[in-house]
């Protein structure tokens, strides 16, 4: 298995532990990651203001992966959603495709749409497989309750993302349970983390996050588990800010899926960047069996 590794902007700049843990874990499963240095912004943050600019940014990334004839493995769900949308819409709309290709031609590039765009969780589930993961787990978690946060832009719009059943998804729960942890059932699991509005309407963004975190905590979760840098920063850094602004209950920490999986594979916490979280998560190792 070989993928073009699409990191996006947020992961390298603000969440290096997501990159580090993903590399560690994917390597353990024999997944080869190819770094394409010329990758650029996926276009997601520009979509509010200029749709075509966003599509152009996405198309350039896809064209770069196409050049190497590699499928893309994406860490960020917002980036995944944007790339999938661009790919989906460019295939349906030849006029737009021509227009975008004319701009890409200036750099000698062409978007054709011949590769697949996959989110890391999909790769774990479909390409590696839950059974293979289970076989590799050396130190399964015991008694650890995880609230899986699916993330909007991976799940919806389902006709574009084809990530999982949008109403009753199982993919992430299966992956969490493969590590021995229990994936709890909770009402708000498919809700938005609020990150898209952080910086735009902080009160609203924090309200939504607070509701979600409260629901997870009341449903018995020890940790949230996520597969998106925006969601993770929202639950980690922004939750810390929320705590300062509004006070309230104890913080519910969030762990990135590759970190959770890595621990159960027997990897060391520091190799997975556990210490880089705002909210302390290193003590999760106490749930690991010997």
């Amino acid at each position: 298995m070989k993928f073009a590794f699409f990191l996006g902007c947020t992961v390298p700049a603000r969440l290096p532990q997501y990159e580090a843990s993903s590399r560690e874990v994917l390597e353990a499963f024999g997944v080869e990651l190819v770094d394409i240095r010329e990758f650029n912004c996926c276009g997601y943050p520009i979509r509010n203001t200029d749709y075509k600019a966003a599509i152009l940014a996405s198309a350039r990334n896809i064209a770069l992966a196409e050049r190497k004839n590699l499928d893309m493995l994406v860490l960020c769900q917002c980036g995944f959603g944007m790339l999938k949308h661009a790919d989906y819409h460019l295939k349906k709309n030849p006029g737009l495709k021509d227009e975008i290709n004319e701009l890409l031609q200036k750099e000698g590039m062409t978007y054709e749409g011949g590769i697949e765009i996959k989110h890391i969780l999909s790769v774990f589930h479909h390409d590696i497989g839950v059974e293979t993961i289970k076989e590799k787990v050396r130190r399964p978690f015991q008694g650890l309750k995880i609230a899986t946060h699916y993330g909007c832009h991976a799940l919806r719009p389902s006709e574009v993302t084809h990530f999982d059943d949008p109403v009753n998804p199982r993919l992430f729960d299966d992956l969490v349970e493969a590590t021995g942890a229990e994936s709890i059932d909770w009402q708000a699991r498919l809700d938005c983390c609020g990150a898209p509005l952080f910086g735009v309407n902080d009160d609203l963004s924090m309200d939504l996050m607070e509701k979600k975190v409260t629901n997870a905590r009341e449903s018995g979760a020890d940790y949230l588990c996520v597969g998106c840098p925006y969601c993770h920063i929202q639950f980690d850094t922004v939750q810390t800010m929320l705590h300062k602004e509004r006070g309230g209950n104890h913080l519910l920490p969030s762990i990135l899926y590759p970190q959770l999986l890595g621990l159960s594979l027997g990897m060391e916490g520091h190799a997975l960047g556990l210490g880089l979280n705002s909210i302390e998560i290193t003590s999760i190792v106490k749930f690991l069996s010997e």
Partner: peptide
């Protein structure tokens, strides 16, 4: 737009 996420942080 989400470009403001950083400004929020």
């Amino acid at each position: 737009s989400p470009l403001s996420f950083y400004r929020g942080l």
